[in-house]
Each structure stands twice: as structure tokens, then as C-alpha cells.
């Protein structure tokens, strides 16, 4: 139970960084932390004490196998996260070129 709670705390740390920080790079790091918290959660709920990796071999009887699907999901979500992060960082670099700052309070040419 404690591990789930720590995972939640990790997610909240990321959320805090997204909501409260002014630096674009820190916001991006916040998004990454949130992503990793979700991936960690995926791995956690599939975890089994003394579980065995789900690889089939003909001579063995497989007992106490962990669920392989969440691990595959975590892999997919890591790849998606990579694409998003790369794009975010790329845009952040272009924003720095245009505005000369990473501070979001100074990047305000758009009016709500």
C-alpha cells in the first residue's frame, strides 16, 4: 500500500511543477515526472511477490506468472511520452529563440 501512496506523491510532485513553476523547462520536467508516475503505477499493479517472468518454455511448468500486458502498455506509453517530450523540448528551444526567455509570465503575446 505504501508503494501506491509514494507513486501518488510522485504524480503530485509532477502536477505541482506543472501548475506552479514559471520556467518552461521546469514545466516540461513536471510533465515527464507525471508520465513516469503513471508508468510506475502500471508496473506496480502488475507486480506479484516472487512472480515469474511470463516467458514460455516447454519443459517447465509455469506457476505464479506476472501479467505481461501492463509491461507492454508501459513500453508503449514510454514511447509516446518520448515523442511528446521531444516535441515539447523542440518548441521550448524555438520559444527561447523568439522571446529570449523561459519565463512563462513574460511569454504573453497572446491575449486570453
Amino acid at each position: 500500500m505504501l508503494t501506491y501512496f509514494l507513486c501518488l506523491i510522485l504524480f503530485c510532485v509532477g502536477l505541482y511543477a506543472i501548475v506552479r513553476k514559471r520556467n518552461i523547462i521546469k514545466i516540461i520536467i513536471g510533465i515527464i515526472i507525471c508520465e513516469y508516475a503513471v508508468n510506475l503505477f502500471l508496473a506496480l499493479f502488475a507486480y506479484k511477490m516472487n512472480g515469474r517472468s511470463p516467458i514460455y518454455s516447454p519443459r517447465q511448468e509455469i506457476v505464479n506468472m506476472v501479467d505481461p500486458l501492463p509491461q507492454a502498455l508501459a513500453l508503449t506509453s514510454i514511447v509516446i511520452g518520448l515523442a511528446t517530450t521531444a516535441l515539447l523540448v523542440g518548441i521550448a528551444i524555438r520559444i527561447y529563440e523568439k522571446y529570449g526567455t523561459f519565463d512563462i509570465t513574460k511569454i504573453n503575446r497572446l491575449k486570453g
Binding site: L88, K98, Y99, R109, L110
Partner: peptide, 20 residues
């Protein structure tokens, strides 16, 4: 252009949270 980058970043940050 500068405005487009800014809008895209705002969109991306919100939408990435939505996807999560």
C-alpha cells in the same frame, strides 16, 4: 512565428495532462 510557438506550447502542456 512567436505566437504560434506559444499557443502550441500551451496546447501541448494542457493536452499532455489530459492524455495522462
Amino acid at each position: 512565428r512567436a505566437e504560434e510557438m506559444e499557443a502550441s506550447f500551451k496546447y501541448m502542456a494542457m493536452s499532455a495532462m489530459g492524455s495522462l
